[in-house]
């Protein structure tokens, strides 16, 4: 029974965080500054997710070449910057990840 409350409660608060804003934000006339702020959301959030994954893969800051996440992340940033191709970034980033880890193990 407790489990049911847990699931329904989590379902409700999660939906409340997602749906109302999605449905309402376009319906009001909002100041231009809000829209300008929102244009920074993708870069701000995705960077805030990715950078700690690169620098602190196991919870502590690691700037060593043994940090596979950091090396392949930096490669991915370079590939993305120069090619602007999502596909190449994923392929070369993940190839670096697996190759570098393989090299470290041997």
């Amino acid at each position: 029974m407790n489990e049911l409350f847990l699931i329904l409660g989590m379902m409700a608060v999660t939906f409340i965080g997602r749906y109302p804003v999605l449905a309402l934000i376009g319906r009001f006339n909002m100041p231009d500054s809000i829209y300008r702020a929102l244009s920074y959301v993708p870069v701000a959030v995705l960077t805030a997710i990715s950078v700690p994954e690169m620098l602190l893969p196991s919870g502590d800051i690691s700037l060593n070449p043994t940090n596979v996440h950091l090396i392949s992340g930096v490669v991915a940033i370079f590939v993305a910057w120069f090619t602007r191709s999502l596909f190449l970034t994923i392929i070369l980033g993940m190839s670096t990840f697996f190759a570098w880890r393989f090299l470290l193990l041997t």
Binding site: V43, T47, S50, E53, A76, I77, W81, M94
Partner: peptide
């Protein structure tokens, strides 16, 4: 997930404000 997010984010960075936003957020 991380390399995909990198591939999506980096092309958004086309001017100084976006670059500063990324550096500050990171």
């Amino acid at each position: 997930m991380v390399v995909t997010f990198i591939g999506i984010t980096v092309p958004f960075i086309t001017n100084w404000p976006m670059l500063i936003c990324a550096l500050a957020a990171g």
